[in-house]
Structure formats: C-alpha cells, structure tokens
Amino acid sequence: MRKTTKSLVAITCAAVAFAAAGCGTTSENTGQAQPQDPTKNCQGPDGKYTIGMSQANLAEPYRVRMDDDIRKAAQKVPQFEDVQFSDAAKDNSKQVTDVENFITKQVDLLMISPNEAAPLTDVVRKAYNQGIPVVVLDRKVDGDAYTTYIGADNVAIGKQAGEFFKNTLLPQGGKIVQIKGLSGSTPAAEREEGFQQGIAGSKIEIVATADGEWERSVGQQKMDALLKAHPDIQAVYSQNDPMAEGAWLAAQAANRPDLKFVGIDGLPIPSGGIKAVEEGRLQATNLYPTGGAEAVEAAKKLLVDCQQVPKTQTLGTELITKDNAAQVYDRLNQG
C-alpha cells in the first residue's frame, strides 16, 4: 500500500510539473533573461511615453538628487509626458510591489535603483521578460535581465579611497574603522572590496566594520559605539558622505577632533560631501554620479531614437580634497 501511494504521488507530481511546464511558457516564468528588442516600444519623435522610476529610498540625499536629476533631464524630452516615481523606503517588499504596479500600468520603460540585489531580481526579470526596457541605476540586480546598467565602478571608487588612505592620510599606517552601507546592496560589497585593494601593502588595519545603512543618523549611532570599543583609532572610511558626517558628529561629541574622515558621493549641494570637504569635516570624498541624466538619455535613445544602448554604462569618478573641492563643486553645478 505504501509503495502504491508513493507511486501515485510521483505520478501526480509529474503531471503537475508537466502541466506547469506547458502553461508556464511565458518568459517571465523561466527564471532566465529572454532575448528582447529593447527598442520595440519606440514610436519615434511623435510618440508619447510613460516611464516608471522605482527608487530604493528617499532617506539618502543621493537618491533625492538622483530623482531630481531624472526629472530635470526628462523635462527636456517633450515625448516623456509622464514620469512616475515611487519610494520603497528601504523596504524590499514594497519595492517589489512598486515594480509590479509599473508592470500593471504597462509603462513604456522602467528605471530602478534596487534596495538590495537578490530580493529585486525576480520582479525586474519579470518586467524585462514582458518586453519592458529596464534601466538599472547605481545598485545592481543578479543576472542580466535588464537592458542597461548605469553606475560608477564601485570597486574602483573603493580602491581610490583606499589609496588615499595609504598614500596621503595614513602613510605610516594606523587603525581605522569602516562604516558600510546596507549589507545586501551591491555597492557596499564592492566598495569594501576596492578599499581592501587600495590599502594592500600598507600598515593600515581595519579594526571594526559597522553597517550604517547609508544613513547619517545610523552612521552617528554606529560611530558612537565604535569609538567606545576602539578608542585608539585614527580615521574612518565611510562608504557614503552622510554616514561620514554622522560619524564626524559622534567624534565631536566624544571630543575626538583628531579623527580623519573619508566618504563617497560628492553631491554638489550645500549639504553634500563636497562642501563638507571644503569646510574641513571630511578630508576627502569620492565622486559618485547619480546617473539620472544618463538614464534619461538611455530612455530617449530606446523610445524616441529607436537606438540600442550598451549593456553597461560606467560613469566616471574623481577624488575630491580641499585642493579641488571648490572647482569641482562649481563645475558640477554648471548648466
């Protein structure tokens, strides 16, 4: 009897699997990226288009600036009548829902800066496999189910920061702490990897690492604890400027004006990292462009010009210190 029952179960399961395979022929169910014509929604200059932009959160000034850059660039493209923005507020489930809503609305193109890679991969693949061109910004998803990825090289940026520590900030070595971004986001891992490459061969020791979730307030809290556990540190490597500023506030409260701080982003705004370098709170920051204007340009090529775009578009970076901060700030705000 037991053997017969097992056989029936096996037959039933096989039948269900076969039916699922037969019914699930739509490409989004395959778990793989399907070949797409990314220009299929192109109607030329006479078309009118709806774009959905799914943002990971708006707690970070960098992401507010990214959305602003997209709005500003889209206003210059008359065919982009409707650009809709959503804020996932650091919630992966909400961002999945946000993207599902854009799919339901049948947007002509999806832009997304994922909160974390793995949880957003399936829904981005679903959009892509349904024929929606997908522009991924800043943070990546797993696999290749997207039309183009636009972002700076986070490994190179981390290495650039590490080399500044090794060659300029702590040439004799020393103890430092690292404040990372959200652990499940790709820039956090890549900026750590690059930094390790940059300090290789030096006597710099990372005595502790904390997850600051990309936010100033969290960075301040984590730095307060780090200072208590490691009072002999000399510097802080922060994976973005807001966390660096939070760490600086914690150091001031702990009467540690001797500590040195390096961040990443270099936003050209009054509250951004470039001004923090100019004013002496940070010793350096590393430019990390938002890619907003480039995302709109990619959308224009795909939807208006009927042109292909590269699979990866790597944005440039530069080290910003007190020597060049004012010039970089002015240059980035031109136009």
Rank of each mutant, 00 (worst) to 15 (best):
Q308I: 07
D330N: 15
N240F: 03
D258E: 15
T321W: 04
L332C: 07
G173C: 11
Q34I: 12
I157W: 01
K322Y: 10
A189H: 09
L282R: 02
R191G: 00
T290S: 06
A210F: 11
S238T: 00
Y149N: 02
E245I: 13
D82M: 11
P114D: 09
V16P: 03
A251K: 00
I233Q: 01
K175R: 10
Y128C: 02
Q327I: 03
I51E: 06
A250T: 02
G201K: 14
W214T: 03
N29K: 15
D122Q: 13
L302T: 04
Q43E: 15
N101E: 08
D330Q: 15
L120W: 13
P133K: 04
A293Y: 08
K300H: 12
Q130S: 12
I179E: 01
E60L: 13
E28R: 09
G151S: 10
M66C: 04
G47T: 03
L249N: 05
E192A: 05
E279H: 11
A235R: 00
K300L: 07
G131D: 06
Q252W: 15
A325C: 06
A161C: 03
Y237W: 06
A73L: 11
W248L: 01
D241E: 07
W214R: 02
V309P: 01
V136K: 02
I132L: 07
A247E: 04
D305C: 05
I233P: 00
V123S: 02
N333Q: 10
V236M: 05
C23A: 14
A118K: 15
G24E: 11
S113F: 11
V296D: 04
C13K: 13
T25I: 14
A145P: 01
S93H: 14
P119E: 09
V218N: 04
Y329C: 04
T104S: 15
A17C: 09
N41A: 09
K322W: 11
K180Q: 12
L319E: 05
E60Y: 10
A59D: 10
T314E: 12
I11N: 12
P257I: 09
N129E: 10
D122L: 07
A244N: 02
F18Y: 15
V328Y: 02
E213Q: 14
A254Q: 08
M53T: 12
S7F: 15
F102T: 08
F80C: 02
L332F: 09
D37S: 10
T5A: 14
N154C: 05
I320Q: 03
S93V: 07
K203M: 11
L226I: 02
P61L: 08
V99T: 03
Q221P: 01
Q95F: 06
G22I: 12
K159P: 01
D258F: 14
R216V: 01
T4E: 13
T321L: 08
N324L: 09
A20H: 13
E190N: 08
